[in-house]
Amino acid sequence: MVKEVLSKENIHLNMEFNNKEKAIRYTGEILYKNGHVQKNYIEKMLEREKLSSTYLGNHVAIPHGTEDAKLEIVETGISVVTVPNGVDFGNGNIVKILVGIAGKGDEHLEVLSKIAIVLSEESNIEKILTAQTKNDILRLFQEVN
Rank of each mutant, 00 (worst) to 15 (best):
G35Q: 02
V74Y: 05
N34L: 03
G28K: 00
Y32H: 05
R25S: 13
A69D: 08
K96G: 13
T133K: 10
V37Y: 12
N40Q: 15
V118H: 11
V5I: 14
A23T: 03
N10V: 00
L56W: 12
V80H: 03
L6P: 03
A61N: 00
K33R: 15
V99D: 01
L109A: 13
T54P: 01
M45W: 06
R25E: 13
G77C: 05
V81C: 07
T82F: 09
K127L: 05
H108Y: 14
L119M: 03
Q132S: 14
S120K: 08
D88Q: 07
P63V: 00
K134L: 03
V37W: 07
A116G: 14
G92F: 12
V87S: 12
N135I: 00
G105W: 15
K134D: 07
L6A: 04
L138G: 08
Y32C: 00
A69C: 00
K70C: 04
D88L: 09
K127F: 07
E21C: 02
V60K: 12
I128R: 08
K33I: 04
S79G: 13
S79A: 15
I97C: 09
S7Y: 03
E49K: 14
E16Y: 05
E49I: 06
K104Q: 12
I115R: 04
V118Y: 13
Y41S: 08
L51G: 10
E4P: 08
A102L: 12
G57Y: 12
K22T: 12
A116V: 09
L13W: 07
V144F: 14
G77I: 02
S113L: 08
G28A: 10
L112W: 11
K70Q: 14
A23M: 01
Y55N: 00
S120W: 00
T66F: 09
M45I: 04
M1C: 11
E49F: 13
V80C: 05
N124V: 08
S120F: 05
M45N: 00
S123F: 12
L129T: 06
S79F: 13
G57C: 08
G57E: 06
T54K: 07
E121P: 06
D88R: 11
